[in-house]
């Protein structure tokens, strides 16, 4: 079995501060933060902090094994690559089918090139599908996990998930006396 890695947050720990949203947007910038501010670059995090009067939790892609977003994409722009569900923004033509298909609301639309802002030539924004890419290639791993002051995020790797499940099965089979 070849399960994917994904990132999920614990609402028991989340303080609803949005560090994760900023960390995500900054991690995907192709320029410095000061430059992004100077050219008023669009803020395009790939996860969304949901705050209700009862709980708070960031919501992001679960990197589904049989991803509804990929299955429905007419452009075949969404594929699995190295265990993550990724969007080929060159193929995407912004039909939003993936937004409708995703049961978590984790798919969004954003300006292509918005993460490489250029003050001289403002992006003639094509709007394309936009989602968590697990910060592929980032040395420190997913930026949201690193930036969360409450340590609310967990990177769920297949082996750890299997171990957790095995532990729970053991506990279920042998309840404490």
């Amino acid at each position: 079995m070849n399960m994917s890695t994904f990132v999920v947050a614990n609402p028991r720990k989340c303080i609803a501060c949005k560090s994760c949203e900023i960390a995500c947007a900054v991690a995907h910038l192709k320029t410095t933060v000061a430059t992004a501010g100077a050219v008023d670059a669009p803020f395009q995090p790939r996860l969304c902090l949901v705050q209700t009067p009862l709980a708070a939790m960031p919501v992001q892609c679960r990197q589904c094994e049989d991803a509804p977003c990929a299955a429905i994409c007419p452009a075949r722009a969404i594929t699995r690559r190295d265990g993550a569900v990724v969007v080929d923004t060159d193929r995407c033509f912004g039909c939003k089918s993936c937004m409708l298909a995703c049961p978590f609301g984790a798919m969004d639309m954003a300006a292509a090139g918005g993460e490489a802002p250029d003050a001289a030539a403002p992006a003639k924004a094509r709007t394309v599908a936009h989602k968590c890419d697990l910060c592929a290639g980032r040395p420190g791993g997913p930026a949201c996990v690193e930036a969360c002051p409450a340590l609310a995020f967990v990177v769920v790797r297949p082996d750890e998930l299997q171990k957790t499940v095995a532990d729970r099965r053991r506990a279920a089979a042998m309840p404490p006396a």
Binding site: C17, K18, S19, I22, A23, V26, V33, A34, G37, A147, P149, L151
Partner: peptide, 11 residues
């Protein structure tokens, strides 16, 4: 650890 202002409040 740092909060959002500490980490992203320098620019």
């Amino acid at each position: 650890r740092l909060c959002l202002k500490g980490r992203f409040g320098f620019d």
